[in-house]
Nucleic acid binder design. Structure first.
Length: 587
RNA sequence: GCACCCCUAGCUCAAUUGGAUAGAGCACCUGACUACGGAUCAGGAGGUUACAGGUUCGACUCCUGUGGGGUGUGCCA
């Protein structure tokens, strides 16, 4: 058997081929390879049971037959894996040390891993729409999930060979700007002046504008006029709007830099303001949209809910809304980017909305014979405080993302000071930033995104359990071993041999499961599967580290253990990179 | 009202998409080479998976109902 990155797929293939040649089996048989409980093996095939049931055959003897045929076919050499029948009719595969070793020898660096993994999504063109803050507002906790989950999905897809386009769909257009411009003018606020935190000023002015419009009908009317002037390209309002956007984007950029988040495009809603006319026209001419109560809407007569709950894509005053620009955006991505797939990362409250958006796009594209990209709504739950209510600051305001990260870094700094006081101030600062920001980010990613979760500083930075510091610590210890032994991390190990001790084998088995973890994380776009895996890998390393000393005199154990260190470091760092966390030399 | 999501150990969360004896961390208890970095490791205890039925070789997972929590539901995004 050739050594491939994804062992499960190889096992699936040889089992499938063997069954195809074997009497009672036919094309309805599916091997169903899954990761097994480590006590039983590395992988198991579950497919015999349902097949036997459908034919009214004895699953146990059917499994025996298949196992025998597999061994006799020579497709599974005994030095690759032991196969056995267990329980009611499971096939268990236990990878052998010699094969584990061959796998470790084959994948020596990030590029080799990436190349092997990239077969999965080879060239598929995917747009990931994430983060998407609103102009003139500071980013707060509500933006963290979309930002970090989106970034990780983007990185994972790219690792799997997709051509990924990250697009930050900034809310830079809409009715709010009239009020904001009104408030800016009323306050005489100079948008060009140097300020400490101009985005915070804009946010305050925005609130002020809202308040003014609420309190007086004249102000509301003035705000409306300002908006009309902006929409008609009035020079003054236009440059005002541009300044607002410049300030907003530079404010967002500070956070993105800190989080290592980058976008290929930041086409905000304003980019589509002249592209909605086509949406209106085509939805009307295809009969997908219709007028209702003065607005333009889409109903779905066969849908339990949406036969009565409208999808409003043009307001009764003729103006566009979120839906209009999202429709135009999807069309643009399909035509200009040739997107085969679009992934939207937003909170769970928008589920209905996206279901309607997708249904509308499907109906519209079908009528026009446009190619419809695959559409995914990657939704996530709310971050809760200790009171189990959406997380807020003491005053009730949303917690600013920057403040949250600052606090994480401060707390991490206190721990670094305590644990490692001898490091230089520069090192401490660097470690605190990585540990603090990484801990916040990891705490988010390690949760199943579909649930709400309770935010807790203790859990985050207690630095025990399934946390970023635990993973970073494992990497730092490996790097420390190489430093101590005076060899570079990529030193060649020509005399390394297959793993022998229980801890060595356990670690090697875990390493080969990397591809399975990525498959899981990508199949349902849930990064927490990758986190769980990395945590278990770091755990297997710690067990190994405590059980078997690397820096020993005998060259045999020394080299084979060094190889395990190299590969653990490689997989952990690759995984951390996919999560957007930078590894540390020391901590 | 209707629709959707959720309920797993004292707490915070997993569970390979219907698979084997439901797993981790925290907290609690017992241990570890004067340390290749103890921000670690080994072990113990802790469960009627909200509840009641059903489907089948097998259910935390699927179907029905009940209770509890959350979200959405015509001009915000």
């Amino acid at each position: 058997m050739t050594v491939r990155f994804d062992i499960a797929q190889d096992l699936e293939r040889i089992l499938q081929v063997t069954a195809a040649e074997l009497k009672p089996f036919d094309e309805t048989f599916s091997a169903e390879i899954r990761q097994a409980d480590p006590r039983f093996g590395d992988y198991q095939a579950n497919g015999v049971l349902p097949f036997a049931r459908s034919r009214n055959l004895n699953p146990r003897s059917l499994a025996e037959t298949l196992t025998k045929a597999l061994i006799e076919s020579g497709r599974l050499e005994p030095e690759v894996a032991q196969v056995s029948v267990a329980g009611p009719g499971f096939l268990n595969f236990k990878l052998q040390p010699s094969f584990l070793f061959r796998w470790l020898e084959t994948f020596q660096n990030r590029e080799q891993l990436r190349e092997a993994a990239s077969r999965h999504y080879e060239g598929r063109k995917v747009v990931v729409d994430y983060s998407s803050p609103n102009a003139a507002k500071q980013m707060h906790v509500g933006h963290i999930r979309s930002t970090v989950i989106g970034e990780t999905i983007k990185r994972m897809l790219s690792f799997y060979g997709a051509r990924v386009i990250g697009d930050n769909h900034i809310g830079d257009w809409g009715t709010g700007f009239g009020k904001l411009i009104l408030a800016i003018k009323a306050a005489g606020y100079d948008l060009e002046a140097e300020r400490e935190n101009p985005l915070a000023d804009l946010e305050a002015l925005y609130k002020k504008g809202n308040q003014m419009a609420e309190e007086s009908p004249e102000a509301l009317e003035q705000a409306r006029q300002e908006l009309v002037k902006l929409q008609n390209d009035d020079a003054e309002n236009r440059s005002c709007w541009e300044a607002i956007n410049r300030i907003s984007r530079s404010g967002f950029q500070k956070i993105y830099r800190r989080l290592g988040v980058t976008f290929d495009h930041e086409l905000g809603e304003s980019f589509y303001r002249n592209r909605v006319e086509r949406v209106y026209r085509e939805l009307e001419e295809t009969g997908v949209g219709r007028e209702s109560e003065g607005a333009w809407v889409v109903f779905f007569p066969h849908h339990a809910r949406f036969k009565e709950q409208p999808f409003i894509y043009r307001k009764s005053d003729g103006a566009s809304n979120y839906a209009s620009t999202d429709l135009a955006t999807a069309l643009y991505r399909s035509e200009a980017f040739e997107a085969e797939e679009i992934i939207y990362v937003t909170d769970a409250r928008q589920r209905d909305y996206f279901e309607q958006l997708f249904l509308t796009l499907a109906a519209w594209f079908e009528k026009k014979s446009y190619k419809l990209p695959r559409l995914h709504h990657v939704w996530f739950g709310t971050i809760l405080g200790n009171d189990r209510k959406p997380m807020k600051s003491r005053s009730g305001a949303p917690i600013l993302l920057n403040d949250l990260l600052d606090e994480a870094v401060e707390r991490a700094m206190r721990i670094v000071e305590e644990k490692n006081p001898h490091l230089t101030p520069g090192e401490k600062q660097d470690i605190a930033e990585t540990v603090g920001v990484g801990a916040v980010r990891y705490a988010d990613l390690m949760q199943n995104r579909t649930g709400d979760y309770v935010f807790s500083w203790n859990k985050l930075l207690s630095l025990e359990g399934n946390t970023a510091p635990y993973l970073l610590y494992a990497v730092a210890r490996i790097k420390s071993i190489f430093r101590k032994m005076g060899v570079p991390e990529d030193t060649p190990l020509p005399h390394a041999t297959p793993p022998e001790t229980e801890a060595e084998i356990g670690l090697a088995r875990k390493l080969t499961a990397f591809s399975y973890a990525l498959d899981q994380a990508l199949s349902d776009l849930k990064p927490h599967h990758l986190c769980t895996y990395l945590y278990e890998l770091a755990g297997a390393f710690s067990t190994f580290y405590n059980a078997d000393k690397v820096n020993v005199d005998e060259p045999g154990p020394r080299q084979r253990r060094l190889m395990l260190c190299q590969r653990t470091s490689l997989v952990l760092q690759t995984g951390l990179h996919l999560l957007g966390i930078r590894p540390l030399e020391k901590m």
